[in-house]
Design a protein around this nucleic acid. Structure first.
Lengths: 193, 193
DNA sequence: GAAAAAATGAACATGATGTTCACTACATCA
DNA sequence: TGATGTAGTGAACATCATGTTCATTTTTTC
């Protein structure tokens, strides 16, 4: 594994942990643990904690943006893509939550209001994306009809699934499995019999 | 407000915060903040952090046990009671998760294996409770039929709702609202048309 | 097997946090 | 109003946790 791949692995792990605990409550050792390496080793790849945070966020942001863009391009199977995103375990939506709480709790540490806006933006875009999927599904008769309120609630339910994926310690694959199945249930509840 | 009521308020707040961050990652100041008081004041009511943790857990445990018992007694509207529990924001199920992670992460700090067992027990009991509700609903024709797997997944979905309630910072009442609505959607998805 | 690269874990400095306490604000009653 | 007790504050302190470094060891490469 070359240095760049390793950096990717590090950024993704860091993002997961930062999302789980927020900036202040994650120790760099937590991230090292997540990676199965030691702090000292980690410091061969990153300058300091803040730097790691910034890089990890930027890295994740780019990937997420690319995925959203890809999905929107090909709206027909966007539903499957959305599911695939979940399965792949991307936690960018949830990061918005913890990011915001971090920013609110410690505005002095990271005055990243512009970046917070970015996340809010992406968050909204993702919601819109899902909204489109559902609207189209209903229009085409694949989904049962739901009123706007229920639609919103359902969006939130799925949103919740994303978030929980971040916060629940998954020991082994069982949590992942349940997560996927739970999502399927929600979506299946939508489908017409 | 007399001393006892104040202690109850303190224990409940502490439980919420401990559930949110786990023992090690919560500062006593976090709990003071949640209560809108200062650390110094808090220390007029509790001996130390560990004591607060133990008392809060015991307190919550008793309440939760009482509720489960009450629900089981009156199985007919157990569904509503279960929902009411959610609405009231009890987070004991989720506490199991963070408790366990605390215990796994810091077995030296709290060798509370017996208490962990207690939580696992209550957790299981709650799951069984919900399982009974669903089984009865299907038997009586109120719920649509779902196979055992889907049943399990659905249980998990609802379980997820509980957990998220703990971890998502609810600013204002909107999160609470969405939480309730999300739960309704899941349950409504179960109902026969 | 030597040289380079990667990884370790102990050491250190500094900042965070649990705990205390002298002091203030507030309520209650004469 | 003033005296007295109760509740609350916030600064101070000691200790512990954690970010960061680095000499040393282990692994990889040729």
């Amino acid at each position: 594994m070359n240095r760049e791949e390793k950096l990717t692995r590090i950024y993704e792990a860091a993002l997961r942990v930062f999302a789980r605990y927020g900036y202040r409550r994650t120790r760099v050792e937590d991230i090292a643990d997540e990676l199965g390496m030691t702090k000292g080793n980690l410091y061969l790849y990153v300058k300091d904690k803040r730097d790691l945070y910034e890089k990890a966020v930027s890295h994740g942001l780019l990937q997420w943006q690319a995925m959203v863009a890809r999905s929107i391009e090909k709206i027909d199977d966007v539903c499957e893509q959305f599911l695939a995103l979940c399965r792949k375990g991307y936690t960018y939506l949830s990061r918005d939550v913890s990011l915001r709480s971090v920013l609110i709790n410690d505005p002095s540490i990271f005055p990243l209001s512009s970046r917070e806006d970015q996340f809010a933006e992406i968050n909204r875009a993702s919601m819109d994306l899902l909204r489109k999927v559902l609207a189209r599904g209903i229009r085409e008769g694949r989904f049962r009809e739901v009123d706007v309120d229920h639609l919103t609630e359902l969006l939130y339910s799925i949103y919740v699934m994303f978030i929980i994926k971040t916060y629940v310690k998954s020991e082994g694959k069982s949590t992942q499995k349940m997560f996927e199945q739970g999502l399927d249930v929600v979506l299946q509840g939508l489908l017409k019999k």
